[in-house]
Write a protein that binds this DNA or RNA. Structure first.
Lengths: 232, 232, 232, 232
DNA sequence: TATGAATGAGCATTCATTCAT
DNA sequence: TATGAATGAATGCTCATTCAT
């Protein structure tokens, strides 16, 4: 009895703890998205999460770690979604369109979360994107994060490439390296998103999706029957 | 005589000043590239430039201003190079290849200068890339910078789109919006560069250029005679 | 029980905080008095208060705020004392003497706190004592401070003028504007204090009090029975 | 001949130099008066004087020295004016009125020059008005300045006291220490000026003069025929 | 556990003064 | 002599992190 009671209490505690953890992550995402990494202070996150600053440190070891966790989680979501798309019963073309739209959409939602993730140097002290990813001189946490993230990204890209593979096997697509194609698609979508701020014209989600989709499938050259679909 | 002498001295002084200015910019570029914007201190730049920190302030009004100048200059170089490419006597295909290679190359060289430029939120207090570019609430300097940079980027993209236009007119390319095509190409190249850190495989400049070039011209679909050029 | 205990702890905490606050103010007063406003650094105050500089900022928003608070508090004390004097059962003459002595004394004690307060331009950016007190272009904090201080000073002078009023009503004093008389008395005392550094002779508190008192009551002209009291 | 020519050139040089010196002083007065001591930078003065900052240092050893010189000069003017008043053929009463008005006026004109002079601690590093005027630990320049200023002030006050002496001898004034009377008068005038910023009502030069004059002559007590002259 | 309080290490920027021409 | 340039030394303020309760 007392045994059970104790377990129950333990259980509840754990549950509560998990909930708080999530609160902090949500708060972090909110603030990071709004202010970027450097400009976000632990105070900001604490305020948003309605905890004391010190409490944050009982859930996470550092500002960095909070950020890492957010990034990692967001990748997890993406993987799940991509799997769903892959397993859908529809044409490969349609799937690709869905992928483009989905990535664009989540980039827009998480805006500078992804922005930061891709870019901010202060993230990994003096490292990210500059040093070759051998990762020596990285702190343990950072190393682990890098590994994690690379694993997840690999998973993402492999799912996409599997979709392409279907198209290649079926003879619909050119016989190319399907992983490279996945790289290209991701590059296009991310690139299109991140440069959009500087464009004169702004494109709706639909228009953007269509544009990228057409170019990715048919390229610039004449000779293929690229449908001249919707224009915004 | 004395007149001339004085002028000469003035001349030399001005020249010296210009040189110092450049030194600081070079130093700034170096350090920003290594550490990102937030983590770069004026002390860092001063040390690198072999000046006292205070001296920096006699050449630039702020850290921000140094950074802006670096970005702006780098854009200027790009514009010049693109113009040269455009005016070359060679096939449009070849020009596109050159553009891809050139952008990739300069992204690699300036590495996270461009990275920072695209991303760092702390740059324009809470603004860059997030708020719509209406720019109210920006400080004067920041506003000017935004204008400048947008002007330059527009120029860049227009040069590229003019090249495409040649191909469209000649019937070589599909009849699409040439500016949109420029957006896509830029997205691909930038995107490919910025995601490369996360890829398992790393691609040489040649291989990257080829890959992007092929996809940009022929897309994924079968039916076009994409040359099966070099593989890394 | 636990309830009470918690409250008690809260109580103690609050008390501790209040004490620290006072420590900082005392430290500030000490250093400001010694070095003046501009030359006093937050580091100085922190050292004197035995806190870290950062801690100061958890109690006060700025150097200015610390200074304002010191000034304000010191005025509060003065008001209290003046009230006491006013309510004493003794002759108006005696009360005036007490006022003179009291103000002189506290000016000596707080020495250049009051000096600074009256004088330092850097206090209110380009304002204090120069611009008419319309107060536009002042920051919020500064505006509030100005209001507060003016309210307190008004209170001080009104108490003094009320004392004079008694004397006027009783026919002892000339029928003059009692507030103007208060202005004059304050001017004499403050003026006498602030110019003393430049005098050859220095006057004891007693002697100073007597001197001012005599002149304030009887003026320079012959014809009144100014007591030729103590000479130092 | 060549001798004379050389002398003439020397002469002109000296003259020019003296003129520049004055320009700088005038500029300094202007800026100090506007911004106070701490907030005034050498750059400000240089700009106002239309010289390079470095040039200032060929005329004065430091910011302090410029300020000292300004103060000293201004005292010189005062002395001259007081002498003139003293030597005028008119009643002592009238002379006193003139003195009051004159001091008030120049305090208003030089506003925070005098303010600073009286108050700013940063002037004499950590000293002025705080340490007993023994002046040890003062820098040479500061010591000299203190001496100078004290000499001049003594002169000023002696002139005033001489005027009073006339009145005492003639039996018009009470038989008091004329120097003390001078101290009191100065205190009243300066005090009245420096506290004016905090008063609710503001007084015109005339009204101020009258007020101070009446009180100085007749005091608060009834029994003397204080003329109930103009009220503002 | 949760938290209010404390702080070390910075950081951008300023300015009186010196130096080289 | 006059000056443009250079700089050392500060200074107010911030923030991630730790500590004591």
């Amino acid at each position: 009895m007392s045994r059970d009671k104790k377990d129950l209490r333990e259980e509840r505690k754990k549950h509560r703890r998990e909930e708080n953890r999530l609160s902090i992550l949500r708060a972090g995402e909110e603030v990071f998205a709004r202010k970027g990494y450097s400009l976000t202070t632990m105070d900001d996150i604490a305020r948003e999460a309605q905890f004391s600053k010190a409490t944050l440190y009982s859930y996470f070891r550092s500002k960095n770690e909070i950020f890492f966790e957010i990034i990692l989680n967001s990748h997890e979501e993406v993987i799940l979604k991509l799997k769903k798309i892959k397993d859908k019963e529809e044409s490969v073309d349609e799937k690709i369109k869905r992928i483009i739209r989905f990535i664009l959409k989540s980039l827009r939602q998480k805006e500078n979360i992804s922005r930061i993730f891709l870019m901010e140097k202060s993230l990994l002290k003096n490292v990210l994107g500059v040093m070759p990813p051998d990762g020596h001189s990285l702190e343990e946490t950072e190393r682990r994060f890098l590994q994690e993230i690379q694993r997840k990204r690999k998973a993402m890209l492999e799912i996409i490439s599997e979709i392409f593979h279907q198209g290649i096997v079926s003879g619909e697509f050119r016989d190319i390296d399907s992983l490279e194609a996945a790289y290209i698609l991701e590059s296009m979508v991310r690139g299109f998103h991140f440069t959009r701020f500087w464009r004169e014209r702004s494109y709706s989600l639909n228009k953007s999706t269509h544009l990228i989709h057409q170019f990715f499938l048919y390229g610039l050259k004449k000779g293929l029957r690229a449908s001249q679909g919707e224009k915004k």
